[in-house]
């Protein structure tokens, strides 16, 4: 079977919900799941999208002189499916954070468009916990609701914040100030703050980069657990391949402001139906190692090394 045929079969299987990929392609080699240059938004016409980014370009600096301007992202097309977990990977400066900020609405586009198909709320977890140091934990978590509602429902905001803190297992730290928390706890407060608005879209910008390996894994599992419970769409920026594989359904490899490839992640397929409890277990599977190789080859190929 040629590369081309397999590729087409896969697209077909994606668009028909009832048919299983395995029926069409019994245990496909991992390389077949590589969807080359998915810059065509029609690729996922069959699934419902949460966000569609079309021909997005962001330029920085240079003023009127076009030759001095730098393109942070260049004609990027990516459909983000509702309920999926998409990881953006690539070298530093490849535009992944800019793309995330475009999706969040924090970065305006020089050209192109970013369309949100759901009216629901978007939350963002920054690289730093970004807690307000003068507010107690509970008041930090309440902040998004205060900003959205103009502080009309102080009691319900408090209840929602308490519930969100319970979800990240920080019920006993509500009255503390951020300086009294460890790095991992601060990050969990930050996640609770993102959850409090019951978002449809959760954006994570290298949220665990500053933490040690064990904490990274634990927080990754927390995010997976929360995603299973709420089924929001997750877009996550990371330069850690293992993290991208353990926590995503698709991996989007970026280089120099462009998307060089989008990979379906076969490793976490089982997570979708909660059969794999811990991402630690996922990391020990042979598929993980094999897919790790595929992703890192893609990264290297994109960088031209």
């Amino acid at each position: 079977m040629s590369w081309e045929t397999r590729f087409r079969l896969l697209r077909t299987s994606d668009s028909i919900e009832s048919s299983r990929r395995d029926d069409i392609l019994p245990t496909p080699p991992l390389s077949t799941v590589v969807l080359k240059s998915t810059s065509n938004p029609e690729t996922n016409a069959g699934t419902e999208n949460a966000v569609t980014v079309r021909h997005a370009t962001v330029e920085f600096g240079g003023g009127r002189r076009s030759r001095d301007r730098v393109k942070a992202i260049d004609n990027v097309d990516i459909p983000i499916r509702a309920g999926e977990r998409l990881a953006l990977v690539g070298q530093s400066g490849c535009g992944k954070t800019t793309l995330l900020r475009v999706v969040a609405g924090l970065q305006s586009l020089t050209s192109g468009q970013c369309e949100h198909h759901n009216p629901g709320s978007t939350s963002f977890v920054f690289q730093q916990p970004a807690l307000l140091p003068w507010r107690r934990v509970i008041r930090n978590v309440q902040l998004p609701l205060e900003l959205q509602s103009g502080n009309h429902n102080a009691v319900s905001a408090r209840d929602a914040a308490t519930a969100a803190l319970k979800e990240v297992e920080l019920s006993d730290a509500t009255r503390r100030f951020p300086y009294q928390l460890s790095g991992g706890m601060k990050m969990r407060v930050s996640i609770a703050r993102a959850l409090v608005t019951r978002p449809d879209l959760l954006l994570l910008d290298e949220p665990f980069a500053a933490l040690d390996d064990l904490l990274r894994t634990q927080l990754g599992e927390l995010v997976t657990r929360l995603w299973r419970a709420h089924r929001f769409t997750v877009v996550m920026v990371t330069h850690n391949i293992s993290e991208a594989i353990a926590l995503s359904d698709r991996i989007c490899v970026m280089h120099d402001g462009r998307i060089s490839s989008v990979l379906e992640n076969p490793v976490t397929q089982s997570q979708r139906d909660a059969s794999v409890e811990r991402s630690e277990d996922v990391r020990r599977t042979p598929e993980f190692a094999e897919f790790y190789g595929v992703v890192s080859d893609q990264l290297r190929e994109a960088a031209g090394t």
Partner: peptide, 15 residues
């Protein structure tokens, strides 16, 4: 990032 957080949730100038 604090600024971004406030913008994300549509904070008014006063807030």
């Amino acid at each position: 990032e604090h600024h971004d957080l406030f913008r994300l949730y549509g904070a008014s100038r006063w807030q």
